[in-house]
Design a protein around this nucleic acid. Sequence first.
DNA 1: GGTCGATCTGGGAGCGCTCTCATGTACCGA
DNA 2: TCGGTACATGAGAGCGCTCCCAGATCGACC
Lengths: 352, 352
Amino acid sequence: MNEQIHRGLRAAPARPTPTLEDLATAAGVSRSTASRAINGGSRVSPEAQAAVDAAVLSLGYTPNRAARSLVTRRTSSIALVINEPDARVMMDPFFAAVITGVTEALRETDMQLVLLMSRAGGDPSRTVRYLRGGHVDGAIVVSHHKADGWTEELAASGLPTVFIGRPWDTGLGIHYVDVDSFEGGRLAALHLAAAGRTRLATITGPLDMTAAEDRLDGWQAGLKEAGLPAGLVAHGDFTPAGGTEAAERLLAEDSGVDGIFAASDLMARGAITALKAAGRSVPGDVAVVGFDDHLTVPGELPLTTINQPTVEMAEKAARLLLADIEDPGAAREPVIYPARLVVRESSEPQAG
Amino acid sequence: MNEQIHRGLRAAPARPTPTLEDLATAAGVSRSTASRAINGGSRVSPEAQAAVDAAVLSLGYTPNRAARSLVTRRTSSIALVINEPDARVMMDPFFAAVITGVTEALRETDMQLVLLMSRAGGDPSRTVRYLRGGHVDGAIVVSHHKADGWTEELAASGLPTVFIGRPWDTGLGIHYVDVDSFEGGRLAALHLAAAGRTRLATITGPLDMTAAEDRLDGWQAGLKEAGLPAGLVAHGDFTPAGGTEAAERLLAEDSGVDGIFAASDLMARGAITALKAAGRSVPGDVAVVGFDDHLTVPGELPLTTINQPTVEMAEKAARLLLADIEDPGAAREPVIYPARLVVRESSEPQAG
DNA sequence: GGTCGATCTGGGAGCGCTCTCATGTACCGA
DNA sequence: TCGGTACATGAGAGCGCTCCCAGATCGACC
């Protein structure tokens, strides 16, 4: 009796959003049948299906995601985890490309993208807790550092996860998508050597990231292959400012540098700024090669770089994740995209 | 009895995530008390609170968001709606800045950011349906066009919504944050006039966006104020390529143009490309003014532009939204940030 | 004609949480 | 000593959905 009063009171203010129950009533079927009709409609007669479809339209019914996910244990959302101290990383076109690719892959799905930026100020474990808390069906980790220790935690949690960029510990069976960074570094070295440059230097990314390490290793292997001595190494942080500072240090150590490979386009731009400020011409005095190939601001000196199909990689990562959510535990090989040298004016005096 | 068998079977594979019930048992209190302790702890004795806190730690308890939101009707997530046909808009630093700002505002909240990109291929109403479906507690709409018709729909739905950039219909009481685009356009005109330029032209954004319209109106008002004739108008789309094409059209119409105001930095860059290709020097032959001031690629010609505090605006929008979710219906005035002229080399021959 | 299988349907439990309400306990002033 | 107030607590319902199960319906086949 108390309950009845309750229901009466609650129903009073014109129920706002229709529930499955309302839908079923409108369609003249049971809640169960309505549910089946909504979800793919197996074991539903054509008439019942049609009645439900019509009711959905006339009522403007949308399933309550919370209720559904409470019982299915699926949330229909995945997280894009960006683990960088500074929020300004979003300014890096790399992340824009990643978001573009992931969005594209989710296009025809009803999956939603939750942006998870874990940052310096916040509790680092909070992100992992969130991920383990069953709030998302899977995660794409896009930028992770050695000290994160996330790889193990995520692998242990069993949450479907795909890394963009090789994780530090690949023995855990974590899926990932990567570009062949080693080969990219090597190609840069060979290209500069072939152009007759001999006093070569590189500006690395933060070496707690595999991409930075691989590019450096490849670079050094390329130098050796070309019969050149291991050149100078300056450490950057993938930002333009970092590239500028690193280039200044390089010039201070060896003012005769005639070729620089920066592990990202942004750093290459920064390096060019420093070179010009120091009175060096590019590519006349110093040839510069970047890495990424998705900085397309017009009116700049076209940059020789290593192309990385970031949008495509992100799309692939998302599709891998969806597959992994659908069929967990299936072993999947890492997907490595080839690195491709794109020669432009910053390394070729005669070009342009 | 059947039920018992069920529960037995289900419990078998070591219950994975602890529920509130488990937590209560571990803490030696009832589910109700545990719930109260979790949620702020009013009407909970210090001992009970301590016991629950300890249990949370030892069990690694995380509330099930779906269950919670099923009863509270809150999802603890807000949507960032980006309504652009081309996914590549993400490459525009403007959106990066918006994401940065929103993320910053959500930092100390347990709110999550859901990225909602509605695009050409998809069903346009799908986004609105999603928003009305109660999947998020509120929405920030960042880029909307006249034909969307969203303003009315969203206003009618009662979903807390904040626009970044004035919506077309401000009579609906929709909250928004904007920069004074009119004043920005005016400042650009006055600046170029003061620099002695007389054959002025502008490159607009898509005129189905209020920002583009306001900048054009302000520009024309400024010209009139300076006693100059209404100059040429070319339409762009906020992209570099659009800026290039628009500038080409301007040059074709009047080869003697000596000052151009582009409604975005990206378009200004594109225009400079076209000008240089046509043999014009910047700022010698043609002075160029942009709008945005968040394109900071080093090594480029520093651009005179109208500064727009995008990160701050996005942060403000998010805070407004949070306030609106907390206390719906409270009337809130639009927040308009001042536009500020930043003079750099692209319009000042003597500078640099 | 009766039985079997296939197909469709509805009843009902329960996912994990919050919230209302009734009860229990402690402490105040009279 | 007792009624009253304040606060802490637990029982229980119910949010909207899915899914299991049992029942109903209908041909088809022996």
